[in-house]
Design a protein around this nucleic acid. Structure first.
Lengths: 158, 158
DNA sequence: CGACTTGGTTCGGAAGATGAACTGACGTAA
DNA sequence: TTACGTCAGTTCATCTTCCGAACCAAGTCG
């Protein structure tokens, strides 16, 4: 990624037809979807709660929630028969987005706010701030983006 | 983040006025910007190279690059006087987005592609695939999103 | 000279976002 | 029982943004 300046990864660049980032952005890539997910991680579940918190137009929220449900990132569930009430919850696939949201939040904290970050994420057990790191389990060490190279994925075995 | 279902973080939810994710999305939150950055990480630098690779409309690319330069995520630099030629490079602030891009890519790999991932990121030194993890330096251990709680940031000291 | 490349700007039409109003099923208080 | 409120939407007119095509300018190559 960060080592894309090397000859290696420039050679590979053209080989990446269907990039995973592209696929992810097909689902997440608009002004509202990630904010909806952020709210969902905070515990927001109901239509009007999303609407009020985000000040999003109703038709847009309807559409975005529908897309997220279609993509199996969120699940729509009726939790009350009468009156009929629905909630939108993160699926495991949606939960798996937490590293993305955390990375986004940390970037904002580090580069976009001059004062203290509005929210701090801490390790539940000890209460100390968390860090997000690249890890190599082979070398058993953490490192920065500078030590990463990209390679084409192994062709599907057959 | 993932523990937003606890009473704790729900209480805090309303206290988060200017969320860092919101601030980040003010810069990154549209269909093209993140794809431009992905290309930049791959080593793409010139206007027409971005345009061809992304199949993006010229005026939109002009606008997005301008925004990224204004936000100091990329820098526009003339690298040839005659004919005047320009390149767009990631600044340190832009480089700092690599964890976000990596998280996005990994989510796509894990949940959106059924075959092998098109690109694999490996540790430069040993060539083994990298992992991205939450780390607590206090406890000296890695963990998943389930072990995170959010807290309001400490008020600016004075 | 004329064609080509790079890095744009300027248009009109298409697509997407917006707020306001409407619906409809139900609950509650007077 | 009448009126009002809530939740979860849909419909519609308008407004903004996006897009592709065309144009432009500066320079280079043959």
């Amino acid at each position: 990624m960060a080592a894309a300046t090397t000859a290696q990864s420039e050679v590979h660049a053209n080989a990446e037809k269907a990039c995973s980032i592209q696929l992810s952005l097909d689902i997440l890539g608009d002004r509202w979807t990630i904010l909806i997910l952020r709210d969902a991680f905070r515990g927001v579940r109901r239509f009007d709660e999303f609407r009020r918190d985000l000040a999003i137009a109703r038709p847009v929220l309807t559409d975005r929630l529908k897309r997220l449900v279609d993509a199996e990132v969120m699940a729509r569930r009726q939790y009350c028969a009468r009156p009929p009430r629905f909630e939108y919850r993160l699926t495991p696939k949606g939960m798996a987005l937490s590293p993305t949201l955390v990375a986004l939040m940390r970037w904002g904290d580090d580069w976009l706010t001059e004062s203290a970050p509005p929210t701090v994420l801490v390790h539940q057990r000890c209460g100390q701030p968390i860090d997000q790191q690249f890890v190599c389990w082979h070398c058993d060490e953490t490192f920065t983006a500078r030590d990463i190279v990209s390679r084409p994925g192994s062709p599907p075995s057959h």
